[in-house]
Amino acid sequence: MDFSALNPVALLASLMIAATPIMLAAIGELVVEKSGVLNLGVEGMMIVGAVCGFITAVETGSAWFGLLGAALGGILISSIFAFLTQVLLANQVASGLALTLFGLGVSAMIGNGYTGIKPPGFNTVNIPLLSDLPFIGPAILSHDPIVYIGILLVILVWYFLNKTKNGLVLRAVGENHDAAHALGYKVIWIRFSAILFGGMCAGLGGAYLSLVRVPQWTEGMTAGAGWIALAIVVFASWKPFRLILGAYLFGGVTIMQLNLQALGVDIGIAYLSMAPYLVTIIVLVMISSNHLRSSANAPGSLGRIFHASQ
């Protein structure tokens, strides 16, 4: 085996690209869960985002319009979940699972006829001087803009949750919806908005897969990325900056297994492909085994249905 064939610059660069879609979907889900709602439909919202983004980009010829289409697609499908769980008070777990199945099916339907097409791409960012730095330049500082928008979004979410009044209200609603209601905050409205934001982020994450990472459209192309995003939120203990770490860790594992496959390492391909999911399970088990630490930061009303009864 020749490990010298692994190029650290290329590895780091592809790691950032692999991490971006999970990070986008996870930061949206983090906001949703902080508001007290557990939306298990991330996978479904991502794939709907992927197909909507792909079709819009191909039809308009602009990747940026593609992103817009993905965001709208994500918002639209998440609004179904929001309506079911916030207005009709349906069970969140069942509704989320249904949303995933629905998303996978509906995306296959509307994406029919778009397989095998190459979508328009993004220009890479070129920061004068910095992008020309050795190692750091090609590895970290010359990607497409979405990689940086993703990181910026995480920072903005952190600022919103921890430094603004509205962020505090959102956390309060997730922590104890009865108390928040008693203080006069509109629990349903706040959760509805959070769910739509989560849908938008998942849609963007999906579009990044179909427009940049792969880039083409195939049925079921998210291949579990939405589930990993859900796991990363728990891994990060609902803290935005740890979420970046988590996304890069899982992105790293994905890239490593792809590279090891390419190198022809003598481990079955099936085992290598399993690696990111196995790591997800192991990390979740490790975190939940210390229940005091993980539950300390979990939103108190997570997954509970709110009904403003007397």
């Binding site: 505090l168 309060a172 108390a179 928040a180 108190g300």
Partner: peptide, 20 residues
């Protein structure tokens, strides 16, 4: 002042007060 306090356990005293 409520009987079953309308407080948020995972938030600090100051954050709880700000919410009101």
């Amino acid at each position: 002042v409520f009987q079953h306090f309308s407080l948020f356990n995972a938030l600090t005293v100051a954050e709880n007060i700000a919410l009101g």
